[in-house]
């Protein structure tokens, strides 16, 4: 085992932590925004749209993220130029930024899960809270924003924390798109001396650290926002 190679990979890969964080937080933001919209549409049982969404979500839930990334990457490389030419735009694969594709795909993969979590959170709020909001003269949106969401957030933070860790780990798969994230950087250095194992160990250590930090921060947040649920200890 080449320990100095682990160290070298580790130091080099640390510089690409921001890329991995982008691959985590940008899709997360998109997922939450669209997840809320989808969850509310399904909660209010908006005709047709909510049915279509349900079918789409079931389909996307079934596709492995690795398959989606590999397939999308190939199609992208093979057909993007032709497609762009057909559309009459001058963009070409060679000068496009692959990280956008990675962000899009990770969003697609986690959207079903996150919208489901949010829907579960919305359903967990007692029906009486909606009625009390209505009876107090609040509009539907006011009730959602001021009464329901503040109660949903602490409810979903534990699941969201788990999903964030899954997203962090899934972002490593962006290596097969050629995005230079932690994993790719770590391997690239190690490959020069054929020390693959060392490269993977270094990457694993960084991801492990990030996971522990995310879990810690989220449990802190959880304690902050769920203050109101605590009973007084008599």
């Amino acid at each position: 085992m080449n320990y100095s190679q682990i160290w070298e990979s580790f130091c080099f890969a640390l510089r690409y932590v921001p890329t991995t964080l982008i691959l985590l937080f940008v899709p997360l933001a998109f997922c939450i925004i669209f997840g809320v919209i989808i969850a509310v549409i399904r909660l209010w049982k908006v005709p047709v749209i909510s049915k279509i969404l349900q079918v789409l979500l079931t389909i996307f839930k079934g596709i492995p993220i690795y398959l989606l990334l590999v397939a999308a990457n190939l199609l992208y490389v093979l057909y993007f130029d032709k497609f762009a030419a057909w559309l009459g735009i001058s963009a070409r694969v060679a000068n496009s930024n692959i990280i956008h594709l990675a962000i899009f795909l990770i969003t697609i993969c986690f959207l079903p899960g996150i919208s489901e979590i949010i829907r579960g959170g919305l359903l967990s709020v007692n029906k009486g809270q909606y009625e009390a909001g209505a009876a107090a003269g609040l509009t539907k949106l006011q009730t959602l924003r001021r009464i329901i969401f503040p109660q949903v957030i602490p409810e979903i933070i534990p699941s969201l924390s788990g999903t964030m860790m899954s997203m962090l780990k899934a972002s490593a798969l962006a290596y097969c798109l050629g995005v230079t994230d932690i994993l790719n950087a770590s391997i690239r250095v190690a490959t020069k001396s054929y020390d693959f194992l060392e490269g993977y160990i270094a990457a694993a250590l960084i991801y492990w650290g990030l996971s522990i930090i995310i879990e810690g921060v989220m449990s802190l947040v959880n304690r902050k926002v769920s203050r109101y649920q605590k009973k007084l200890t008599a």
């Binding site: 809270q129 009625e131 009876a135 003269g137």
Partner: peptide, 30 residues
């Protein structure tokens, strides 16, 4: 609804707000 008020059998206080905030909510928002 803004001319009336409703008191529920099971209270339905807004669980995420203190007693004071509960009373203020319809005043401020509605």
């Amino acid at each position: 609804r803004r001319r009336t008020a409703f008191v529920f059998q099971n209270y339905n206080l807004f669980a995420n707000m203190t007693a004071l905030k509960n009373v203020m909510e319809p005043l401020v928002t509605a």
